[in-house]
């Protein structure tokens, strides 16, 4: 995980604390340093709202502009609550107000990392499902669409102008290519790949 804080001691202490809880932690003294170094690694970002140069909120904007989905946990001083609210509104994962108990911090970091992991897993599944669907021919995609729309074999045959037998043939090819045994599994795959009936 990543810590961006301009205060050297605080950054180091966070690394020590997070390290003791088993997190591998990289610290950056400024938003610019982090932006230059970050390469879409998994984890979460612990970010100080107030920093000289680029503030935490600006960094959040920059990350959003670049489409970087890393979850951000903001750390705020007491006076910065309106900024924290603003950060949440812009889609921050969570925020922590100083002073905080270590369990609070670790709990939020854990949840942020879990959320990142599940997002990455979903992303992975989506890519896999998409790749699998790529293997289908154009005709097979048409049949699949009809299947998703819940049409019967006969209706599908009529719509596509082929015989019911051919539809059945395509259907079994689809199941075979995607290595699916049941309809439910097929539907689940399509949902992950964001393929929906038109």
């Amino acid at each position: 995980m990543f810590v961006v804080d301009d205060d050297d001691a605080l950054r180091d202490s966070l690394r020590a604390l997070l390290g003791s809880a088993g997190f591998r932690c990289e610290g950056y003294a400024s938003a610019a340093e982090f932006l230059a170094a970050y390469r879409d690694e998994a984890g979460c970002l612990l970010l100080d709202v107030r920093m000289p140069g680029m503030s935490g909120l600006r960094l959040q904007d920059q990350l959003a502009e670049r489409g970087v989905p890393i979850p951000i946990v903001f750390v705020t001083g007491h006076g910065d609550v309106p900024m924290a609210v603003e950060a949440m509104r812009k889609g921050a994962f969570d925020f922590l107000e100083k002073p905080y108990a270590d369990e609070e911090l670790l709990d939020r970091v854990r949840r942020a990392i879990a959320s990142d992991a599940s997002r990455r897993r979903e992303e992975e599944e989506r890519r896999a499902a998409e790749a699998a669907l790529e293997a289908l021919t154009a005709r097979e995609r048409e049949v699949l669409d009809c299947l998703l729309a819940g049409r019967t074999g006969r209706a599908t045959a009529q719509q596509l102008g082929i015989t019911e037998k051919t539809v059945e043939f395509h259907r079994s090819r689809i199941m075979q290519k995607l290595q699916m045994r049941t309809r439910e599994q097929l539907f689940e795959l399509c949902r992950r790949a964001r393929v929906f009936p038109q």
């Binding site: 205060d7 001691a9 605080l10 180091d12 202490s13 966070l14 020590a16 604390l17 997070l18 390290g19 003791s20 809880a21 001083g77 007491h78 006076g79 100083k98 002073p99 270590d102």
Partner: peptide, 27 residues
């Protein structure tokens, strides 16, 4: 608020180091 901020930073660092130590000791 500046004074508070300036004090909060080292205080936070102390708390973090300390909590880190506690964790390590427990392990």
């Amino acid at each position: 608020s500046t004074l508070a901020h300036e004090l909060n930073q080292p205080l936070g660092a102390i708390a973090n180091y300390n909590n880190g130590c506690i964790r390590l000791l427990r392990q």
